[in-house]
């Protein structure tokens, strides 16, 4: 999924770098609202977590494998702005220290996986939260759909960039269909891992899930007195 050098021509690479810089700049401002002065250590640790999670591979049918991109997962866990920062730093480290994704394609990669991946994941998640009942049990399914859609949307955006700055005369509708179909399969894996991970965190530390804050706050404290408990059990107290 990491775009290498030479995939897109130089002007397109420079343009996406500008877009990515804008997105990261906005995220730097927004993250201060989500994490205040804790931003650096927290986002750094979450970036290390995303990096470790990306090493989990899952099989995609014709005997290949995909790995988690983590855009929707990061957005739901730590908020969209911090999520964009985490993903961008992960991509920066991967390109400079692991040669994974080209240096000139860094802007493209941040645009696709950082800005679009996290953005789509978050918007779908928030949209679903409005539609679905506001209960903690609905957080994981909403995150799953965010993950499911974020991958093919990023792939379609890549096809769009390829149409503008691609080097080969590929039949665009074929490429679009292939990319969308292939990445929908990867999206299903992404959705499953995202949902299962979010669900497991919701059972242990729901307070850490940024996307669940509104749901948790809307819960009302219910105080049960012994009299109520007696009434519940029909007065048959042993």
């Amino acid at each position: 999924m990491h775009v290498p050098d030479g995939f897109l021509d130089a002007p397109t690479s420079v343009a996406t770098a500008g877009f990515a810089a804008l997105g990261v700049g906005l995220a730097l401002r927004g993250a201060r609202r989500e994490l205040d002065e804790r931003t650096a250590p927290m986002a750094g640790l979450v970036a290390a977590f995303i990096f470790a999670m990306q090493m989990l591979n899952f099989p995609v049918p014709p005997s290949t494998s995909g790995h988690l991109l983590g855009g929707a997962l990061a957005a739901v866990l730590v908020g969209p702005w911090t999520g964009v920062l985490c993903l961008s730093v992960v991509l920066l480290v991967q390109s400079l220290m692991f040669a994974d994704g080209g240096v000139t394609a860094l802007g493209t990669n941040i645009t696709l996986m950082g800005v679009i991946g996290v953005g789509v994941g978050w918007l779908v998640f928030r949209g679903l939260q409005r539609l679905l009942p506001s209960t903690p049990a609905m957080v994981a399914p909403a995150a799953a759909l965010g993950g499911l859609l974020s991958v093919p949307v990023a792939a379609v955006a890549f096809t769009g960039l390829y149409a503008v700055g691609g080097e080969a005369a590929v039949d665009l509708s074929t490429l679009l269909a292939a990319m969308a179909a292939w990445h929908t399969l990867i999206g299903i894996g992404e959705a499953a891992i995202t949902a299962l991970t979010v669900a497991s965190i919701m059972t242990v530390r729901p307070d850490l899930v940024y996307g669940a804050r509104a749901v948790l706050e809307s819960r009302e404290l219910e105080i049960r007195t012994p009299a109520d408990a007696d009434a519940d059990t029909d007065g048959s107290v042993a």
Binding site: L28, G44, L45, A48, L85, V89
Partner: peptide, 8 residues
């Protein structure tokens, strides 16, 4: 960003 990267 440099700080986040350093921590990561």
């Amino acid at each position: 960003l440099v700080q986040i990267m350093a921590f990561m």
